[in-house]
């Protein structure tokens, strides 16, 4: 059997493009608007979310036959909240400046619909390894959109990438101006809208 036909491969790669959580299922838009002004914060946020998603999927899947049906949402939330607080503590210890910039958005990963959604629809009914792959796949799908949007916004809005100026001074001298609109949240709306449009058009064929 070719590797592209295995179930694991599908579980991992479908959410990266075909059913991308952000551009395909329109989930997790809130944080995609909030933390994409700079590439650096977007990458850290992506890593934090992928970490939480992978391990929440994995641990919920491990317990899936033990979790009492009537309290399963509470159990999912407890697991997710624990992981989010853990990620927040690690960021505060090793990336203090970035964690200050992300402020409450790391904490708000708890309410990110992608995580609850994957736990409910996938992890509760599938074995741990596949759930882990599904978590990482969805995390990467989210990261990919976040990073694309952040590149668009930082480049067009501030003329920088990772805080370094990339648009040459000569261009500014010739009359080029930064698009201040891209720094604001509506700029992210438009960027995400364009990506959704691109995705729908490409995957139709």
């Amino acid at each position: 059997m070719k590797i592209t036909r295995t179930k694991a491969f599908k579980v991992f790669f479908t959410p990266i493009w075909e059913s991308n959580p952000v551009s395909g299922q329109i989930l997790g838009i809130c944080s995609a608007l909030a933390v994409t002004v700079q590439l650096k914060t977007a990458i850290v946020m992506s890593l934090a979310l992928t970490f939480v998603l992978a391990f929440s999927n994995f641990s919920i899947s491990l317990m899936r036959n033990l979790i009492p049906r009537n309290i399963r949402i509470i159990v999912e939330l407890t697991v997710i909240a624990t992981l989010v607080i853990f990620a927040d503590q690690v960021l505060k210890a090793f990336l203090y400046d970035i964690s200050k910039q992300l402020s409450i958005f790391v904490g708000l990963i708890i309410t990110n619909c992608i995580i609850m959604g994957r736990a409910e629809t996938y992890a509760l009914g599938n074995p741990p390894f596949l759930s882990l792959l599904d978590g990482i796949g969805n995390g990467l799908g989210y990261s990919q959109i976040l990073i694309t949007v952040a590149i668009m916004r930082e480049l067009l809005g501030a003329g920088k990438l990772f805080g370094f100026q990339v648009i040459p001074d000569a261009l500014y001298a010739a009359g080029y101006k930064n698009m201040g609109f891209m720094v604001l949240a509506p700029g992210a709306f438009i960027a995400i809208g364009l990506i959704v449009w691109l995705q729908k058009t490409v995957s139709k064929e």
Partner: peptide, 11 residues
């Protein structure tokens, strides 16, 4: 009882 025990252990 099972739910309560599970919740307690998880907490």
């Amino acid at each position: 009882i099972k739910s309560i025990i599970f919740a307690a252990v998880l907490s």
